[in-house]
Deep mutational scan, measured.
Amino acid sequence: EDYYQILGVPRNASQKEIKKAYYQLAKKYHPDTNKDDPKAKEKFSQLAEAYEVLSDEVKRKQYDA
């Protein structure tokens, strides 16, 4: 799945936009606030993985290549 789609940001998003999108979605899908939703944990880990790659310039360049 596309990391940009997961975070809901365009491919040319700035680091600030990526961070903002991640924090909004992380708050929304955090397992502690969605105890009754088994998919929230999965969504949250996808968000974390996408953010880890896109927030790191080197990893992001490799991902975009």
Rank of each mutant, 00 (worst) to 15 (best):
E1C: 10
E1V: 13
E1I: 12
E1N: 15
D2K: 04
D2S: 13
Y3G: 01
Y3N: 02
Y4K: 00
Y4P: 00
Q5W: 13
Q5K: 15
I6S: 04
L7T: 00
L7W: 00
L7S: 00
L7R: 00
G8W: 04
G8V: 03
G8T: 04
G8D: 07
G8P: 00
P10E: 12
R11Q: 09
R11W: 06
R11V: 08
R11I: 06
A13Q: 01
A13M: 02
S14I: 04
Q15E: 14
K16V: 14
K16E: 15
E17P: 01
E17V: 13
I18T: 01
I18N: 00
K19I: 14
K19W: 13
K19V: 15
K19C: 09
K20N: 10
K20R: 07
K20S: 15
K20G: 07
A21D: 01
A21W: 03
A21V: 05
A21G: 03
A21C: 05
Y22A: 03
Y22C: 02
Y22N: 01
Y22M: 04
Y22R: 01
Y23R: 14
Q24S: 12
Q24A: 14
L25Q: 09
L25G: 06
A26G: 06
A26H: 15
A26D: 03
A26T: 08
A26N: 07
K27E: 15
K27Y: 11
K28A: 13
H30V: 05
H30Q: 07
H30Y: 08
H30D: 15
P31A: 11
P31I: 05
P31G: 08
P31Q: 10
P31V: 07
T33I: 12
T33C: 10
T33M: 14
T33H: 13
N34C: 08
K35P: 15
K35E: 08
K35I: 10
K35L: 12
K35V: 12
K35D: 11
D36S: 08
D36L: 07
D37P: 03
D37L: 03
D37F: 03
D37S: 04
P38R: 06
K39W: 14
K39P: 05
K39C: 10
A40T: 06
A40S: 09
A40D: 06
A40Y: 07
A40W: 11
K41Q: 15
K41V: 10
E42Y: 07
E42F: 09
E42H: 08
E42N: 06
E42Q: 08
K43M: 12
F44G: 04
F44T: 04
F44E: 04
S45H: 12
Q46P: 03
Q46Y: 08
L47M: 08
L47K: 01
L47I: 13
L47W: 03
A48N: 14
A48K: 12
A48H: 12
E49C: 07
E49M: 14
E49T: 13
A50I: 08
A50N: 00
A50C: 04
Y51T: 01
E52Y: 07
E52A: 13
E52Q: 08
E52D: 13
V53W: 06
L54C: 02
L54Q: 00
L54S: 00
L54R: 00
L54F: 01
S55F: 06
S55E: 04
S55C: 06
D56S: 04
D56T: 02
E57K: 07
E57F: 05
E57L: 10
V58T: 10
V58C: 08
K59D: 03
K59Y: 05
K59H: 04
K59C: 05
K59G: 04
R60W: 01
R60I: 01
R60F: 01
K61V: 08
Q62Y: 08
Q62S: 12
Q62R: 06
Y63S: 02
Y63N: 02
Y63G: 02
Y63E: 03
Y63H: 03
Y63L: 02
D64W: 02
D64N: 05
D64A: 02
D64V: 02
A65P: 04
A65V: 10
A65C: 09
